[in-house]
């Protein structure tokens, strides 16, 4: 009896360690990214393909500043130095987005260009940003995390509980989850409670009526880009801390982020967050090999011989895509009602 309970506990710890926590932190990163996409979608009314590379750009600046701080011996003790560099990264990203808007998007906004043309325009922006990032920092992997690695170490967890399975929580994972919660709360407070936030929601809801109410569209656009820059830089930096920084990976994040935004209901911030976690959990759940879990739960005679993996990890894109297609077929407005632009 006791053994069965311990086996069960081991299985739970195993799942927590390899499914729940990674999915939570990946989901938070996706959610922040999808929020940026959904803001552009809701207010500027186009699918911004440059968002992944905006994240890469912001992260790159953060990394450069982090390296400089590290070389000066400035740090945050147990926390990664990148947090200290983050504001600079955000500032530069705001700058580049505002310049892009001035030089590129503004023209098309005034012309009332259809969203699909703006999508192509954003592809052009994406490649320019991609070129800049690769030019400055190169196409290779960059690690920039420092400070403490773990909040909970697998070995100490085992020693403490006496279980066979270890549970670990990386600093990057803990930070991701905490920062994501803070950011989301701040964003919602801003959108729901402040005058500017409300005017942005109004603009997203009904542009003409917002203009008739005296909302200044240039200001709304300006603030949108600032928020997008903050979200993108934070999401990119957290992802880079958690995994590693490589320009190509950020490009590949586009699909899951778009999927998250659309699955949740495009233009709907709550939906973007929900979508982020739905996509992240599906990806991790479907590509995890459950063999060890079943070894704990089933009697020895029934032990599975295969890995018990539904899909190979290489197909994680397929997962976000399939969820995207399913949701669009069954509920075209997304899980939370999004807007049709």
């Amino acid at each position: 009896m006791m053994e069965a309970i311990i086996d069960l506990l081991n299985a739970i710890v195993l799942l927590l360690n390899f499914v729940v926590i990674p999915a939570l932190s990946y989901g938070s990163q996706l959610a922040l990214g999808a929020l940026g996409i959904t803001m552009v979608y809701g207010i500027l009314r186009f699918a911004n393909f440059a968002h992944g590379d905006t994240m890469a750009f912001g992260t790159m600046i953060t990394i450069l500043v982090t390296w400089w701080l590290q070389s000066k011996g400035i740090g945050l003790g147990p926390l990664p130095t990148a947090l200290l560099a983050l504001p600079v990264g955000i500032l530069f990203t705001i700058l580049i987005l505002l310049i892009t808007d001035k030089l590129v998007y503004q023209h098309y906004r005034r012309q009332k260009t259809p969203p699909i043309t703006l999508l192509i325009v954003s592809l052009g922006v994406m490649f320019m940003m991609n070129g800049i990032v690769r030019f400055v920092i190169g196409p290779n992997d960059q690690r920039f995390i420092d400070g403490e690695r773990f909040i909970i170490h697998a070995r100490s967890f085992k020693a403490m509980t006496g279980l066979d399975e270890g549970f670990s929580l990386k600093v990057s994972q803990g930070l991701t989850i905490v920062i994501a919660i803070i950011m989301v709360l701040a964003l919602f407070w801003f959108l729901q409670k402040t005058r500017t936030g409300k005017s942005m929601r109004a603009y997203s809801d009904n542009e003409e009526l917002a203009l008739l109410s005296g909302v200044n569209p240039d200001r709304v656009v300006l603030i949108t880009w600032i928020i997008v820059a903050i979200l993108a830089t934070v999401a990119g930096t957290l992802y880079g801390l958690d995994k590693s920084f490589k320009p190509f990976t950020y490009l590949q994040l586009l699909l899951p982020m778009f999927a998250a935004a659309i699955v949740g209901g495009v233009g709907n911030p709550v939906g973007a967050i929900l979508g982020g976690y739905v996509i992240a959990f599906s990806e991790v759940v479907v590509t995890y090999a459950y063999k060890k879990v079943f070894v704990y739960l089933l009697p020895a005679s029934l032990e599975p011989s295969s890995l018990m993996q539904l899909l190979s990890t290489d197909y994680k894109f397929a997962v976000s895509f399939i969820i995207l297609v399913l949701v669009l077929l069954i509920k075209p407005t997304g899980l939370m009602k999004g807007k049709v632009i």
Binding site: R195, K198, S199, R201, A202, S204, D205, N206, E208, L209, A210, L212, S213, G214, V215, K339
Partner: peptide
């Protein structure tokens, strides 16, 4: 102040928020 014939409310906002938007300026 102008009330258009159609699409004349912010459908995703509460009644109170709609009124607040009227007083935006």
């Amino acid at each position: 102040a102008f009330v258009p014939q159609s699409n004349n409310v912010f459908v995703s906002m509460t009644v109170r928020e709609n009124l607040e938007m009227g007083a935006f300026l």
